[in-house]
Design a protein around this nucleic acid. Sequence first.
DNA 1: CTGTTAGCGCATTCAA
DNA 2: TTGAATGCGCTAACAG
Lengths: 344, 344
Amino acid sequence: MNKRPTIRDVAALAGVSVATVSRVLSGDYPVAGNTRTKVQRAVRELDYVVNAHARALSGATSNVVALVMYDVVTPFFAHIASGVEYQATESDRLCLVCTTHGDPDRELEIVKLMREQHADAVILVGGVLMNDDYRERMYRYAKGLEDAGSRLVLCGRPSLGPDFPAITVEYDNAGGAYAATSHLLSAGHRRIVLLGGPVGNTTFDARLDGYRRAMEAFRVPVDPALVVHDDMSQDAGFRQTQRLLAAGADFTAIFAANDLAAAGAMRALRAAGKRVPDDVSIIGYDDTPMAPELFPALTSVHLPHEELGRTAVKLALQRGENSTRQHVMLGTHIAMRDSVRPLI
Amino acid sequence: MNKRPTIRDVAALAGVSVATVSRVLSGDYPVAGNTRTKVQRAVRELDYVVNAHARALSGATSNVVALVMYDVVTPFFAHIASGVEYQATESDRLCLVCTTHGDPDRELEIVKLMREQHADAVILVGGVLMNDDYRERMYRYAKGLEDAGSRLVLCGRPSLGPDFPAITVEYDNAGGAYAATSHLLSAGHRRIVLLGGPVGNTTFDARLDGYRRAMEAFRVPVDPALVVHDDMSQDAGFRQTQRLLAAGADFTAIFAANDLAAAGAMRALRAAGKRVPDDVSIIGYDDTPMAPELFPALTSVHLPHEELGRTAVKLALQRGENSTRQHVMLGTHIAMRDSVRPLI
DNA sequence: CTGTTAGCGCATTCAA
DNA sequence: TTGAATGCGCTAACAG
């Protein structure tokens, strides 16, 4: 293991000064043609690579974008991560990925680490439990990051207001739920189960809200017995549907607030001898890769996952007036498949 | 945006020297109790965080582990990434994620970037096209990384030999295929389709090999007409199965070299009016989250994804004699579900 | 166009 | 136990 060469070694071998080496390396400075080639040859000869830390210390930026999410395997997060990674690469940035598994302490720790790293941006992804503590925490994050020259991006979660020093990139969560419910309603369904998530969670609150508004628009009263809250796992979908069935609940359609719960519901329906979509129509949310694989293929609300990630990075990297507090909302659409049947 | 405070500011506020501040921050050095508290108070007061680049420049290590893979959304990669991220966090490391989308140039670029970053380890994940060019490339990577104090880890791909300066963490790829095929064979199947991947790819070559060896062990001749090669997409599985069906191929079971192709095959079977497992049994590989969601739930070869990732990080971080060229092989097992039926 | 030099923020000798 | 001084490798003035 040889000691790795520094810019001085390159300068010595090329017979020029370190400044010149630095210049040909960064590229954006006039250097005589043959000086340049001399340096480049020396670089190749020594297999020299710059020290990113020294560079970051000397200049300012670290060329790193940090991504903070619940986990890395849930398709929702994985696809957003994909968009972030893609855009980061395109912008010559590296992508640091951290997971919290829902632990606020871990999140705090990560934000601190990102300040240490001087990340260009810190992107917090996904729904949260919205309350004062959360707001306050985000405010501290935003300030701390701002001091470090970073910026905070809220991705897939609501904005904290136009004066809040963070960038927000969200999707039309409630709108998607509205569209999904309307789709069912337009097909003649009136007794529609909502398989919802934890109360207080921004993601599932918004989906419930969309459901409510669509029902209202069609002048269909919401039957509280058909609105359930649980964690959004497969098992929860299964369990809740089974419970509804056992209780003899009267419904012809299910709107599951995510695909996983929809899959669980389909399993429960099948186990009970009900056929989808003949007996019960069902629509999911998130349009995860599993949706088209289910049988029947699941109609679901499609989210612009990758676009969310890409936009988050793009906005975070764009400098200039007020670039630190923007808000964009991306659209959703229904991916129609085979799990919804018109009534009559 | 205030300028962020440095260690000097802390020292000044606490009325001590920067050396002392450095000492209480790193923790592992005797400092008088009240001096320590004075410093800590100043740190809190100023909301000071160390500059990771300055620290890395001064000391040596950067506390970063790099993960290089095809993409970030394929469950195979996502789950390995999860293991890496988990273990990295546990070892107080940050996790840098890069994707290549199969581009060797991009890979080369990433390895260079990681040398610049002085990453503690660079973990290359997943199957590759094995040839001399590849071997040579890896050798250069390993050497370059070694000089930078990093180490190269090959994860989910074969070792390049005991003398090769890299750590290898793989799973028993051929063994899994052997087990899967044997499972079908034991159930009385003899005419078994292999939905295989690109020739030359280490992952799919090994799976083909396991299939061959199992057939041989059962003294069942391999019918070349039943062995197909394609990319391992859903569509490929669909297409190839459809083609086989149209050609009137004689088979009672399918071993798909991944779950995606298995899903495609099931779709083709269903479209042709064949029932799984009544008419055709099927078994997949990778045991992705989709497997239990399919109908019928897919029996599949389960891989220790997370363990692969964790082990890669663990070995890479462990210092000492010969710690730079280790080789571990993790086991696989069959996740039994509903897509295989005993014949008779 | 090229060289000299002064930091960037921190860890780490070496003294005290 | 603490402080002063040095250097990590590089970029960015500032001269020439």
